[in-house]
């Protein structure tokens, strides 16, 4: 459905997108994830034909975006990071304009009504876009991307600036779209990807850092379990005795708990086993009261930070070795 091969985009001599390749099949909901400035928006702009690329290729439903732009663009619906709305039009007029712009051949009234129903904009159809709230801006923006029933829908940070209820609604909307369309959303919010996407592409500094199914990526991190414990006593002794404990791979003292003589410790076990019992027994033996303890399983956040950090240190190492040479 969508195939990106060795895509490179340079602004001056800076690489915004550096040699990324992936392909996305029909009906997949894919999250494009990365910190700010990692090249997500640039990648989306290239896929939709708004920007050109320096080298590589982007094929949409069999059409190359620069060679057959109008055929390729017919298969795309795009919500840029700022919804492209005309404030002086009503929602209905705007959607009619987009319908004409995309040269649709579907039944106009029926199609636009369907889109309004999907995006829950039926009640605001006759209002000027200027007078809508941010949440509705976003909805009308999504509605615009749906006009013409494109096979691929790209949404650039679709939930930015929405309230929690709206975020939940938009997410379920996106998941619904995944039934009939291929959806790509870009975001830097990890829980969003976890909630919505089947597959995650992680970008960092213009490169593709990871391309995994969401459940596998989460599984990757379940190998290590982390315990957060608040233990009273001397920081040094506690650290030493925790490190000596069997099955503990990593201990770190964090902040002191105000009003007590306790400190917060982050403890990781190496084989994924639950070490809370062992910690309790050890502390009881040494008379170090535990005033709080919880098990925190790794989130996608950790995966993400791990992957981007690994890449960074890896690239730093190669830089160093090349200097030595």
């Amino acid at each position: 459905m969508l195939k990106v091969e060795n895509l490179v985009k340079k602004f001056g001599d800076k690489y915004a997108v550096n040699d990324i390749s992936f392909s996305i099949n029909k009906g997949e909901v894919v999250g494009l994830l990365g910190p700010n400035g990692s090249g997500k928006t640039t990648t989306m702009n290239i896929i939709t034909g708004f920007l050109s690329y320096t080298s590589g290729s982007v094929t949409i439903n069999g059409y190359e975006i620069l060679e057959n732009p109008s055929e390729a663009k017919r298969n795309i619906g795009y919500l840029p990071d700022q919804p492209p709305l005309y404030p002086e039009m009503t929602v209905k007029e705007y959607l009619n304009f987009v319908y004409d712009l995309k040269g649709c051949t579907l039944n106009r009234k029926k199609h636009i009504m369907e889109i309004c129903e999907i995006t829950k904009t039926v009640d605001i159809r006759d209002r000027l876009i200027r007078n809508l709230s941010k949440g509705f801006y976003q909805r009308v923006g999504i509605a615009q991307a749906l006009v013409g029933n494109p096979k691929i829908i790209l949404l650039d940070e679709p939930t930015v600036g929405l309230d929690p209820k709206q975020i939940i609604e938009i997410r379920s909307l996106i998941r619904g779209l995944g039934r009939d369309h291929t959806v790509i959303i870009s975001t830097h919010i990890l829980s969003e990807v976890q909630a919505v996407c089947d597959r995650i592409l992680i970008m960092n500094k213009g490169r593709l850092a990871a391309d995994e199914r969401t459940d596998e990526l989460t599984k990757l991190m379940e190998g290590t379990k982390r315990v957060l414990a608040q233990i009273c006593g001397s920081k040094k002794t506690i650290l030493e005795s925790l490190r000596a404990l069997d099955g503990v791979s990593y201990v770190e003292s964090s902040k002191e708990i105000p009003g007590t003589d306790a400190t917060l410790f982050k403890i990781e076990s190496n084989n994924g086993s639950d070490i809370r019992k062992k910690i309790f027994e050890m502390c009881a033996e040494k008379n170090m009261p535990i005033i709080g303890m919880e098990l925190a399983s790794a989130s996608l956040e950790d995966v993400f930070l791990n992957i981007t950090r690994e890449k960074q240190t890896a690239s730093r190492k190669t830089k160093k070795t090349s200097k030595i040479r």
Binding site: N45, T48, P69, K73, I76, P84, L101
Partner: peptide
Amino acid sequence: KLKTEQLILTSPVS
């Protein structure tokens, strides 16, 4: 300014 050029330039209009 309104970024509507993104809509127009990503639509099948030359």
